[in-house]
Amino acid sequence: MATVVLAAPRPSTVGRLVADTWTSMLRVLLNYRHSPGLLAASLGVPVVMVVVFGYVFGSAMRVPGGGDYREFLMPGLFAMVATNGVMPTMVGAARDVGRGVTDRLRSMPVSRTGLLLGQTLADLLVSVVVLALLALVGLAAGWRARHGLADTAGAFALLLLFRFVMTWAGTLLGLAVGKEEAAGQLSVAVFPLAMITNAYVPTGGMPGWLRLVADWNPISSVVQACRELFGNPSAPGSAWPMQHATLAALLWSAALLALCVPLAVRKFATHGR
């Protein structure tokens, strides 16, 4: 066999970033295509959440200051979908490390940032579909976006931004953990973080210290911002992030991205050193 190096001459950094981002995206999307179960689970979860929270718990819920509980709930469920972005990326990154896929990719002349960016962008595409489905289910359950197109688009943009943030957080955690099972176990820890928020119940009834945690939880900022942008009922506390929810959500997202992206890229580039 001839030992001709087939690889093309060294391309520009930007060209390589774009090409590798695209290829990496393709890999994640192909995985989704061959795992109907995974897609069905992503799509099924929002429906189940609307039924369980909206109708089972919701039958006993009262929103302070009035308003329909299901309308109160929907922004919370949207934010949950965004938050859950941490899980598939975390498990996927850990699996790649554990199976040696990460090592193979790192031994190749590829853009490391592009590989990770592709994975997070692919997840973003999937979450667009999931959010759209959840919105349809919400509409059927009586939820409405009442503030016009611009605010509605703004709310969804914020949700996608937050999902993007969470997939980078998941990538970082997955690379750090490095084992698929351990990443699966860590996913369970996401649950309490997601529960100590204003997503399902107003924080007003919580004990003081818990309320403080909930009001400053980044997820709560996203939920409150969406409630305001959609014109849905809300019962914000007096904490600063609740009074300036959109700004707080943007600041949280920017801060988390500024932290997670460089750390994840560095972890990926120097894994095992």
Binding site: T23, L26, R27, N31, H34, R99
Partner: peptide, 20 residues
């Protein structure tokens, strides 16, 4: 170190693309 969730052919094609 292969991706189990996709086909053998796709595994190689993706690597070929990464190798430009």
């Amino acid at each position: 170190a292969v991706d189990e969730g996709i086909t053998g052919r796709d595994n190689l094609r993706l690597l070929g693309r990464l190798h430009r």
